[in-house]
Amino acid sequence: MTAAVVAAYEHPYTRHAAAGTTTEHVLTAAFHGVLREAGLRPDDVDGLGVASFTLVPDHAIDLAWRLGLRLRWLMEDPHGGASALNLLQHAVRAVEAGDARTVVLLAGDHLDRAAFRELVANYNRATAETLTPLGISGPNALFAMLTQRHMLATGLTEEDYALVPISQRWWAGRNPGAVYRAPLGLDEYLAAPVVAAPLRRYDCVPVVTGADAVVVTAAARGARAEVRAFGASHNHDGQQGDGLHTGHHLIADRLWADAALGPAEVGLACVYDDYPVMALAQLQDLGLAPDPGRLLHERLAVDHWPLNPSGGQLSAGQAGAAAGLHGLVEAVQQLLGRAGERQAAARHALVTGYGMVLHRYGACANAAILEGKR
Score class of each variant (00 low, 15 high):
G68T: 05
H348W: 08
L328R: 10
V207M: 02
E129G: 03
A107P: 01
A126S: 12
E330N: 05
G98F: 11
R347V: 01
R294W: 06
I61G: 15
V120F: 05
G47Y: 09
Q89V: 14
L336D: 13
H249N: 06
A344N: 12
V205D: 00
A346N: 08
Q334H: 14
H79I: 14
V5E: 08
G324V: 12
G49V: 15
W65D: 14
E341H: 13
V216G: 04
D44N: 10
L88N: 07
L106W: 01
E118D: 12
D109P: 02
V34I: 01
Q89L: 11
G355A: 04
A232V: 10
A91N: 09
V195E: 04
R72D: 06
G20N: 08
R72I: 06
L106G: 00
H32T: 00
A30C: 15
Y202I: 11
H236A: 09
L325W: 10
G173D: 00
H11Y: 11
P276R: 09
G108A: 06
E298S: 12
L325F: 12
H32A: 01
V5G: 05
R36I: 05
L358R: 08
A30K: 09
G287F: 08
G327M: 08
L88C: 07
Q282L: 07
P165C: 14
T130N: 13
L261S: 06
K373T: 10
A349E: 06
A279M: 04
R181I: 12
G320H: 01
G138V: 02
Q313M: 03
A368H: 07
E371L: 09
H359M: 15
C270A: 08
L255H: 08
G320L: 01
N175T: 15
V214Y: 00
S315A: 09
H245E: 10
D46A: 15
A321P: 07
P42I: 13
Q318N: 07
L69I: 15
V195G: 00
L142R: 08
R149D: 06
D285M: 03
E188C: 12
T352N: 14
T157H: 09
L328T: 09
T102Q: 07
V227F: 02
A281M: 07
L134I: 05
G320Y: 00
I136K: 01
A192W: 03
D187G: 14
R41S: 07
D43K: 15
C364F: 15
L307D: 00
E76M: 05
V45C: 14
A141F: 14
G155R: 01
D99K: 09
L286K: 05
N235E: 13
A223F: 02
V214G: 15
R70S: 06
H110W: 11
R224W: 08
D303W: 13
D285I: 05
H297F: 04
Y354W: 14
T217I: 03
V103C: 10
A82D: 07
W305D: 04
R93C: 14
I369P: 00
A368Y: 04
P292M: 08
D58H: 13
A191Y: 10
T352S: 15
A7I: 10
E330T: 13
R169K: 02
A269S: 09
L295Y: 11
T352V: 10
V6L: 04
G231N: 04
D109S: 09
